[in-house]
């Protein structure tokens, strides 16, 4: 699923401008499942914006509405009336939903309430990890279902590199809680972000292929990746001619 997390309220408040009627729009799909922008979160965000504006002395109207999927305009059409009343929309969808909103309601101003973080899976309750970068050219068949593009710090294609030790990558991840780096006192007393261990994807790949007796898959030199299917080919598009509706004759 698409995993996202809420922006700090302060940041959202900062982009509201002089809007008096704010519509907080939740999305019922990915961001509901990752508890960042579903119906509950939209209600809570609306409440938080109302309270904060009252405390600040410039009360605004903040209401909420949630659609099944903000990334499809058919669903947005269903909330036209609510959108009409608002002078600004805080979209709690992923970046796709925000853009669909902006495109479908061109005369409305829409701002994101979330940071879209990655394509991932729930590791356990409350923890999500990145699994896929949508490079457009899946190599999981070679790597035993473990993605080096998304999960190796250097996207090495012929790993593991020399920075692998005890199954861990030498590169550490900045530890974030609720999106904010956790700061700790570093050497010399300077505050710096705390880090946490990351598994070496190639160590995992090696062990899994060995387990399945398929190490032969990675003994050859993997050719340089064709990134044209990835973002490097520009914004991507899929055309399925079997699905396109022809113009009526």
């Amino acid at each position: 699923m698409i995993v996202a997390e809420q922006k700090p309220l302060e940041e959202i408040k900062g982009v509201l401008g002089d809007a008096e009627n704010v519509l907080v729009a939740g999305c019922g799909t990915c961001v509901t499942v990752c508890l960042a922008g579903g119906e509950k979160e939209a209600q809570l965000m609306a409440s938080a914006l109302r309270i904060a504006s009252r405390v600040d002395g410039t009360p605004i109207e903040a209401t909420d509405v949630t659609v099944q999927r903000q990334c499809e305009w058919e669903y947005l059409e269903m909330i036209e009336a609510e959108v009409e009343k608002a002078d600004l929309i805080v979209s709690l969808a992923c970046g796709i939903g925000v853009q669909t909103f902006a495109r479908h309601f061109p005369d409305k101003w829409v701002v994101p309430g979330l940071n879209t973080t990655f394509l991932g899976q729930p590791e356990e309750q409350g923890i999500w990890t990145e699994q896929c970068q949508a490079c457009g050219n899946c190599m999981l068949a070679m790597t035993g279902g473990i993605c080096p593009v998304a999960r190796c710090s250097k996207q090495v294609q012929n790993g593991p590199c020399g920075g692998s030790e005890h199954g861990l990558c030498e590169v550490k991840r900045i530890r974030r809680v609720d999106g904010v780096p956790v700061m700790v006192k570093g050497r010399g007393g300077r505050m710096m972000p705390a880090t946490e261990d990351v598994e070496c994807a190639w160590h995992l790949i090696h062990d899994r292929l060995k387990e399945h007796n398929r190490l032969d898959l990675i003994t050859g030199v993997q050719e340089p990746k064709d990134w044209t299917t990835s973002r490097d080919g520009g914004p991507r598009r899929i055309v399925r001619e079997d699905l396109i509706l022809m113009d009526e004759e």
């Binding site: 710090s153 250097k154 996207q155 090495v156 294609q157 012929n158 790993g159 590199c161 920075g163 030498e170 590169v171 550490k172 030199v221 993997q222 050719e223 340089p224 990746k225 990134w227």
Partner: peptide, 22 residues
């Protein structure tokens, strides 16, 4: 190459278009 997080520009974007083998 050492990952940029070890150096003095940790907020940079790395390239890794190819790996050393390639």
């Amino acid at each position: 190459g050492d990952h940029q997080s070890f150096g003095n520009h940790p907020t940079s974007k790395n390239v890794h278009d190819m790996d050393s083998m390639q």
